[in-house]
Design a protein around this nucleic acid. Sequence first.
DNA 1: TGTACATCAGTGAACGCGCGTTCACTGATGTAC
DNA 2: TGTACATCAGTGAACGCGCGTTCACTGATGTAC
Lengths: 214, 214
Amino acid sequence: MSEERDGGKPHLTRQGSLRRTSLLDAAESVLVAKGNADASLRAIAGEAGVRVGHLQHYFPTRADLIKAVLERALDRSLERLAETTGLRLDPADPSVIEVTEGSRADAAEVVAVVLAEQEDPQLVRLYVEVWALAARDEEIAAVVREFYRKYVAYVEAFVQQGRPEWSADLCRARAETFVALVEGAALMRSGIAGSRSGALDEQLARQAVGLLRD
Amino acid sequence: MSEERDGGKPHLTRQGSLRRTSLLDAAESVLVAKGNADASLRAIAGEAGVRVGHLQHYFPTRADLIKAVLERALDRSLERLAETTGLRLDPADPSVIEVTEGSRADAAEVVAVVLAEQEDPQLVRLYVEVWALAARDEEIAAVVREFYRKYVAYVEAFVQQGRPEWSADLCRARAETFVALVEGAALMRSGIAGSRSGALDEQLARQAVGLLRD
DNA sequence: TGTACATCAGTGAACGCGCGTTCACTGATGTAC
DNA sequence: TGTACATCAGTGAACGCGCGTTCACTGATGTAC
């Protein structure tokens, strides 16, 4: 039985699969530390402890590598959101959302977890890099749009679950406004556009919770 | 009477001053169109119709040029905010805010103007570029922090004016939350993280106005 | 009003450098018989 | 169980290219006397 294989992409051995992961780790670390413009293949290869030419064994071009790094990082964020909300996209049909846990998190908990996640400055730097890349590169823009589509879908489902009497349009608008507030909060709290304070965190949480349920 | 002069910076003639402005225009246009990584001095000089070597007559290094572009663009945004709110920072002491017009704009108007401004996709691209640059370059980070400090100061003064009974801390927290919501809205409405819709705009406006006065 | 001179405006060629990519190559690993 | 062979893992040197910067230079403009 011969397997379908796409192009010249090599089949990964166990060792190769580990190596691929370690290259993605190295690339993400350099990308966050130095920004896209300064994250050269040489810097990434150095971080990973391999030679430059070897990167192309796993990622033929630099664009392939960067795209893979961002896809993995954004998927990780969605995974955390799924755990926090107790919801999950149906892998077969990502427009359907299932409830995975009996006990539903409440709005304040979801907001607290989302804001706590932003306290990792490296993650915020990665997001800012992602936005800038998406504004220039259509392939990355597609990855980013898909991420936010799912992000909003989770929040919308969460709102709908708590307020079954609200229309789908209202739940969607509130979910989009919630995401806007949270992404803007990342900027204001990260040192880029402002800095954290107790009063700001309290006001942000009040607004975010209100969007989810009031 | 001899004038103080800093370093080798040339004195600008009328013609030179116009040229400097046209170089900033060209640089801003290329920066928005291609992003920082692809906005080379050759591309900028080409856009301006001069030779590469000539750029350094006005801006000794690329960093000087980019910084000047961003400073000018951010100042322009603050200028529009001053007009919209009918307030103005005291040039002598920027922590003091003066009322410049008798008739004060209401919160809904301010929100409408701010959201309308975001409908220029080039401006949003510039902002995203600014955030990414600020995360890497300390000199630009300082410019950006100063911009948001003033931005928040305007909004805080506007809130305080409408709600004199609120504490300074509350006005400040609401102003910061307002800015977070608005900057996040730029991402959600620009095509980077989402797209505009009437329902979203309505929900955003409701939240933003509420932050300013309810 | 003219002239001399300092400064500004702008050119054009060259520089060294780091970049992403290419490619021929050597060992290591897995697999078919 | 052994052997042959295909594929994978990883090396290392070289490539052409575009980059920011440097610098010696020529005209244009303003100004002092």
